[in-house]
Lab assay of single mutants.
Amino acid sequence: MKKYKITVYDEKTGEKHTIEIEMSEEELEELAKKLAEKHNVKVRIEKV
């Protein structure tokens, strides 16, 4: 498992949230996809 920083940005409201999380790359990609689809936000992932 690796550490990642996830930034979620909502273009409508301008809200931006960043968290650090430790998980596998596959789980992370699935999480990012679900966030983007369900909440209509942009998701950026960076390795820490």
Rank of each mutant, 00 (worst) to 15 (best):
H39R: 11
K34Y: 10
D10F: 08
L35N: 01
V48R: 04
K2I: 15
K2W: 13
E25P: 09
R44F: 11
L28Y: 08
A32H: 07
Y9Q: 05
N40D: 11
L28I: 11
E37Y: 02
E30G: 08
M1L: 13
M23G: 08
D10Y: 07
E11D: 08
Y9G: 00
K47W: 06
L31C: 09
E46N: 04
K12Y: 11
E27C: 05
N40L: 08
H17A: 06
G14H: 05
N40R: 08
M1K: 15
T13A: 03
V48W: 00
V41I: 11
I19M: 11
K34P: 01
E27W: 06
K42N: 08
M23C: 13
E22H: 08
T7C: 07
M23Y: 03
G14D: 04
V43L: 02
A32I: 15
H17K: 07
V8T: 07
K38H: 12
I19P: 00
E27N: 06
E30N: 12
E22T: 10
L35H: 02
E22Q: 07
M1C: 10
E29M: 13
K2C: 10
E29H: 14
I21Y: 05
K5N: 05
R44V: 15
K42E: 09
E37F: 03
R44D: 10
I45C: 04
T7Y: 08
K38M: 15
K12S: 12
L31K: 02
K38W: 07
T7L: 05
T7R: 00
E46F: 00
K5Q: 09
L35K: 01
G14K: 05
E26Q: 11
E20P: 00
K3M: 07
E22S: 09
K33C: 10
V41G: 15
K12R: 10
R44S: 14
S24W: 13
Y9N: 01
K38T: 09
E15V: 08
E11F: 07
E29C: 14
E11V: 07
E20L: 14
K12G: 10
L28W: 06
Y9V: 09
E11H: 05
M1G: 08
K12P: 02
E30T: 13
E22P: 02
K16D: 05
E46L: 01
Y4E: 00
N40I: 06
R44N: 09
E37C: 06
L31D: 00
M1R: 15
E46W: 00
K12Q: 11
A36H: 11
K33W: 02
I19S: 03
T7I: 08
E37I: 05
T13S: 06
E27H: 09
N40V: 05
V41H: 06
D10I: 04
N40H: 14
K47S: 14
M23R: 01
E26R: 09
D10M: 03
E29W: 14
K16P: 05
I45S: 01
N40Y: 03
H17G: 03
E26L: 14
K33M: 08
E29K: 13
L35C: 09
E22F: 13
R44W: 07
E15L: 13
E29I: 13
K12W: 10
V41S: 08
V43F: 01
E37Q: 12
S24I: 10
L35W: 08
E20M: 11
K16S: 15
K34R: 11
K5P: 02
K16E: 15
I19K: 02
E25V: 09
R44K: 13
N40T: 07
E22N: 07
S24R: 11
I19G: 01
E15S: 08
K47M: 15
E26F: 09
E46S: 06
E15P: 00
K3I: 06
K34H: 15
K38I: 11
K33T: 09
L31Q: 01
E11Q: 08
K2P: 15
E22M: 10
V48K: 05
K2L: 13
V8P: 00
K2H: 15
K33L: 10
T13L: 03
K3D: 02
D10V: 03
M1T: 15
E29A: 10
I6L: 06
Y9A: 01
V43Q: 01
V43T: 03
K2E: 11
E37V: 08
K3S: 03
E20F: 15
L31G: 01
M23W: 04
Y4F: 07
L35G: 01
E30A: 10
D10H: 05
E46Y: 00
K16Y: 15
H17D: 03
A36W: 10
G14F: 03
A32V: 14
K42C: 12
Y9F: 10
K12L: 15
N40C: 12
M1Y: 07
K33D: 05
G14I: 00
E27R: 07
V41D: 06
H39I: 13
K47V: 15
I19Q: 04
T7A: 02
K38D: 10
R44E: 09
K38Y: 07
H17F: 15
E46Q: 05
E29G: 10
I19A: 03
T18S: 06
E20W: 12
M1Q: 11
H17C: 13
K47E: 15
A36K: 11
Y4H: 04
E15R: 09
E26P: 10
M23I: 14
L35I: 06
E30D: 11
K34S: 11
V43A: 05
Y9E: 06
H17V: 10
H17Y: 15
T18A: 04
Y4G: 03
I45G: 01
K5L: 14
M1I: 11
G14S: 03
S24Y: 14
E25G: 07
M23K: 01
I45T: 02
E37L: 06
V8Y: 13
K12D: 14
E46I: 09
V43C: 04
E15Q: 11
E30Y: 11
L35V: 04
K5D: 01
E11T: 12
V48S: 06
S24V: 07
L28C: 11
K2Q: 15
E15H: 10
L31P: 00
E30I: 11
V41F: 06
I21E: 03
D10E: 04
M1A: 11
E37A: 08
E46V: 09
K34Q: 09
R44C: 13
K42I: 14
T18W: 05
L31I: 05
V8A: 02
K2R: 12
E20H: 10
V41K: 08
E37P: 03
K38L: 15
E20N: 06
I21G: 04
V48Q: 06
K47Y: 06
K34C: 09
V48T: 05
K34V: 12
E26V: 12
K5V: 14
E37G: 12
E11W: 07
E20Y: 15
A32W: 14
M1V: 11
H39N: 08
K38C: 05
I45R: 03
E25H: 09
A36P: 02
L28F: 08
K33G: 08
K2G: 10
M23E: 01
V8E: 03
V8L: 10
S24C: 11
E20A: 04
I21M: 10
A32N: 06
K3Y: 06
I6A: 00
S24N: 10
V8C: 11
D10L: 03
V41Q: 06
E29T: 12
V48I: 13
Y4Q: 02
K16I: 15
E30P: 03
V41N: 10
L28H: 03
S24K: 08
L35D: 00
V43G: 01
K12A: 14
I21R: 05
E30M: 13
E11P: 12
T18D: 04
K34I: 12
E22Y: 15
V41L: 14
Y4K: 02
L28Q: 03
I6H: 00
K12N: 14
V48A: 06
I19V: 07
I19H: 04
T7H: 09
E15W: 09
N40F: 04
I21L: 11
E46D: 08
A32T: 14
T13I: 02
L35T: 02
A32G: 07
I6N: 00
K3H: 05
K12M: 13
Y9W: 15
E37K: 13
T13C: 04
T18F: 06
E30R: 12
M23L: 15
Y9H: 04
E11C: 10
V43I: 13
Y4S: 02
K5F: 11
E15K: 12
E11L: 07
V48E: 05
H17T: 10
Y9T: 09
M1F: 06
E37D: 09
E29R: 13
H39K: 14
I45V: 09
H39Y: 04
M23H: 01
K16W: 15
N40M: 07
I45H: 02
V41E: 04
K33H: 12
I19C: 12
S24A: 09
T7Q: 03
M1W: 03
E27Y: 05
I21D: 01
N40G: 14
T7E: 06
K42W: 00
E27S: 10
I21A: 07
K42Y: 00
E26W: 12
I6P: 00
L31W: 13
E27Q: 14
E46R: 04
E30S: 10
H17R: 08
I6C: 04
T7S: 05
L35P: 00
K42T: 14
L35F: 08
T7P: 00
Y4D: 01
N40K: 06
T18L: 05
E25M: 08
I45N: 00
L28V: 15
A36E: 08
M1N: 11
K5G: 00
E11A: 05
Y9I: 12
E20Q: 05
L28P: 01
K16H: 14
V8H: 01
Y9K: 02
N40S: 08
L35Y: 06
K42R: 13
I6Y: 01
K34T: 13
M1E: 06
E11N: 05
E46T: 08
A32P: 03
I21K: 04
K33V: 10
L31R: 02
H39E: 11
L35E: 01
K38R: 14
E29N: 12
K34D: 07
K34A: 11
H17I: 13
Y9P: 00
R44H: 15
D10A: 01
E20V: 14
T18I: 13
I45Y: 03
K3N: 05
K12V: 15
K34W: 07
E11M: 08
L28A: 11
E29S: 10
V43W: 00
E11R: 03
K47F: 08
